[in-house]
Every structure is written in structure tokens, then in C-alpha cells.
Amino acid sequence: MDVFGVAITGVGIIFLFLGNFGVLRLPDVYNRIQAGTKCTTLGAFLTIVGVGIMEPAWLWKALLIALFVLVTNPISSHAIARASRKSGVSLCDRSVVDKTKDFEEFREKT
């Protein structure tokens, strides 16, 4: 059981590190949010659940923290992404399509 918990924690930590690395490496703010949300959510979830498996008395509280991270992380990233779009951060040079105009027209209509 202990080995299982250590393995889960290790996988989670690798994902957390990749998320942090992606935030440093990717070219513009939207891509950074992609890496920063997905990898850290699963990474933190697996790390905390792994600790809960290693110490069964802590399992319920650890699960609560993990669920809280799983629910709030997408919401806070979504808020930052919306703010960066509203404050006019442009996409990077490698982008292929930008349909924001259609969306703004739709907003004007309603």
C-alpha cells in the first residue's frame, strides 16, 4: 500500500513539474494557461490523494482538499483568461485562427 501511494505521489509531482515548466516555456498567455491549468490540476490531485493513501487517517481531509483544487482551479484560470482577453493581450505569431470577432458581433446583436 505504501509503495502504491509513493508511486501515485511521484506521478503527480512529475505532472506538477511539467506544468511549471510549460508555464515558463510556452509562447503566449493563453498557451501558458493551458499548461498551468491541466497539468497542475491533475498533479496536485494525484499528490494529495497519494499522501492520503500513505496515511489512511488523513484520507478524508486530503480528498476534500483535492476536490477543492479540482473544482476551483479551472474557475480561477478561466477568470484570468477572460481578464487577459478583455485587457487586450494578443495571440502569439504561430496562431492560425481567431474567431473573437464573430463572438463580439454576436454580443452586439443580443
Binding site: R25, Y30, R94, D98
Partner: peptide, 10 residues
């Protein structure tokens, strides 16, 4: 090489 092809769709 970072194989990304980002864009915004509706």
C-alpha cells in the same frame, strides 16, 4: 520543436 497550432474558435 513545440508542436502547437493555437487558435480561438466558437
Amino acid at each position: 520543436k513545440m508542436p502547437i497550432k493555437p487558435g480561438i474558435v466558437v
